[in-house]
């Protein structure tokens, strides 16, 4: 929506600069310390990275929309898990057995519907009660996770269907389905946020809710739509991931909300709402996945990876703050 001027371009481009830095660093460091034979920037490795980014990435796109709108959704991890449970369990239902491979799209639709309904529940509560989205979705995060456990106790839910696995692992020019889904979601969400009335109004509401009300915008419905979008995207993420794996544990998707928020914030979207971009978030997702892979490539363990990502998140936001402060001071003369 905001056409970019030079400063915006620098700020919006920062995440891509960071990605280039990572690529260079890990390529060079990898040539000294790596245990593997292949180069870090190997093409297949990059395609794999895109695919691995998909589950969090798809959710992060939804989180960007929610955060631009001035809300937050902590329940996405639980929505992700519950949608996966519905998808895999429904394929075990007797009625689905009669459908043959047509059971696959039906199961997918059921999963997406689950996500949409859960998002709708969040949205309608936020709209009608006026309770802060943080509190509402904190509650629904616990509640939805409870539903996951009620469904199948501590046991995993599984269903293996080779046709479904084939679809999930299908590729176009080496880009596999989950990566394609991520790219499609990024493009569509970007169009929604930059080109449509809904996107424009979402920015306005997030930036100044009172002025939006005074301009006659329907604040509640816009927020509701966005919660349905993020719920559906959390389910889509589950569809893309579990179609291949075929088995979901009741604890799956835990902390996904925090990883998604990390990617969104790294990509330049503000916690206070009203500004941010889908493309920035895409950059944030790639940057995090690069760090994980890169640190793994040079032999760091998972604990170290988390420590580094956490530190970088704080450092990036500190830098951003410094840059913004400088900008403001110059404007105020």
């Amino acid at each position: 929506m905001q056409r970019m001027n030079t400063t915006d371009l620098i700020k919006g481009g920062a995440i891509w600069g960071f990605i280039v830095l990572e690529l260079v660093f890990f390529s060079v460091a990898g040539s000294f310390w790596s245990l593997s034979e292949s180069a870090f920037m190997d093409f297949d490795n990059m395609l794999l990275l895109l695919k691995q980014s998909a589950p969090i990435g798809i959710i992060a796109v939804g989180m960007t929309i929610i955060m631009i709108n001035g809300n937050i959704d902590l329940s996405v991890g639980a929505t992700f898990a519950l949608s996966a449970v519905v998808m895999l369990d429904s394929m075990n239902w007797p009625i689905m057995a009669g459908l043959g491979d047509w059971a696959i799209p039906v199961a997918w639709l059921l999963a997406l519907l689950t996500g949409a309904v859960l998002g709708f529940i969040n949205g309608i509560i936020v709209w009608k009660t006026g309770v802060d989205a943080f509190i509402v979705t904190l509650g629904s995060m616990l509640g939805f996770r409870g539903l996951v456990f009620m469904y199948n106790g501590e046991n995993p839910t599984f269903h293996l269907n080779w046709t479904m696995v084939d679809i999930a692992e299908w590729d176009a020019l080496g880009v596999e389905t989950p990566a394609l889904v991520l790219i499609a979601v990024v493009v569509v969400a970007w169009l929604i946020m930059t080109r449509t009335v809904h996107g424009r109004n979402a920015y306005a509401i997030g930036n100044n809710r009172e002025a939006a009300v005074n301009a006659g915008l329907r604040v509640g419905p816009h927020m509701l739509i966005n919660f349905v979008i993020i719920g559906t995207l959390a389910a889509l993420s589950a569809v893309a991931f579990y179609s291949a794996s075929g088995s979901v544990n009741p604890n799956d998707g835990m902390l996904f909300e925090l990883w998604a928020i990390t990617a969104v914030v790294l990509g330049g979207t503000k916690l206070t709402g009203g500004s941010g971009s889908i493309i920035g978030t895409f950059g944030g997702v790639i940057a995090i996945q690069l760090l994980r892979k890169g640190l793994g490539h040079i032999g760091a363990d998972t604990e170290t990876v988390n420590l580094v990502i956490g530190s970088i998140l704080i450092a990036v936001l500190f830098l951003d703050r410094q840059l913004n402060r400088k900008g403001q001071e110059e404007l105020k003369v």
């Binding site: 929506m1 905001q2 056409r3 009335v197 424009r200 109004n201 920015y203 306005a204 930036n207 100044n208 009172e210 002025a211 939006a212 005074n214 301009a215 006659g216 915008l217 009203g274 500004s275």
Partner: peptide, 19 residues
């Protein structure tokens, strides 16, 4: 506080109610 969406550009503020 009540009239403008400060983060938006001039054009988008003018067209806000009728976009």
């Amino acid at each position: 506080e009540q009239g403008l969406v400060l983060g938006m550009n001039c054009r988008d503020n003018i067209t806000l109610p009728q976009v």
